[in-house]
Every structure is written in C-alpha cells, then in structure tokens.
Amino acid sequence: MSVDSVFVHKMWNDHELAKMVKGGVPFPMLSDGGGKVGSIFGVYLEDAGVEARGRFIIDPDGVIQGFEVLTPPVGRNVMESIRQIQAFQHVRKTKGAEATPSGWKPGKPTLKPGPDLVGRVWEVWKTSMAFDD
C-alpha cells in the first residue's frame, strides 16, 4: 500500500515489477490517496506526504501480532518477516502452550512457559541459540 493511485500501481507492475517477478505482483497493490489508512496505522509521514516502510502481521482473527516500521531509505528483511509469521503460526497452533525464544526458527526448540520454567531458562536456552548456526 502506498499513496500512489491504482493507475500508477499498474504502470509500476506492468513495466518494472513484472520484469522481476514472473507474471507480476500476485497480491493486491493497494492505493491510499491522502494517507487515510496509513494515518490510522501510524505510518503516514505528513511532512513528506508518503508512507513509511510499515509492515503489519495480522492473524486470522484480524489481530495485529507484530509490526515493523522503517524510515524510507532502509529496506526490509523479508526472511525475518517470514520467520515471525512461522513463529506466530506455531504459537497459535499450540494455543499458547509453547513460546518461541530469541533466534527461534522452525526446527529449533521452543519454550513451555509455566512455573517449572521460572529461573531455569538458562538451562534450556543458550545465548548461541539467538544466532543462526
């Protein structure tokens, strides 16, 4: 979503993005003229009249599980967004019985929060696990 019109979205998709992604962008490119939607999500930059690089993960109940907002010059890390979605999906599947500690990705051990874990995280989670192998 950006403040550009759907007509400009079409031009960008057809003349540039389709050269990067075969068949063009597979999801809706939303238009937010005037930044009305961006304003309620807190990402509309009034002085510049554009939207910051905001990314919101919304679960199947419509609840915002996480967001990241960057100023325009710095791009995002798509893999980190995917990792977060995988983590939120895992937590949801376990109905909150499991939590994913720092550095978690699919295959790595999760934590089972409860009285037994208090003061004993150091036994099951090592700082090296915060980083990729």
Binding site: M1, S2, I57, Q89
Partner: peptide
Amino acid sequence: NVQLSEFLGKWVVLCFYPGDFTFV
C-alpha cells in the same frame, strides 16, 4: 476494491512503502 475484513481466517501481511518505482 479490497476490504481488510475480507481476509478474516487468513494470515495477512500489510505492507506500506513510500512510493511506486522505489524499492520495497
């Protein structure tokens, strides 16, 4: 026309960016 609530039941990633013909 897209309405956010049409996507209830699915995971949604909503991305804002400064402008077309920039990078994402």
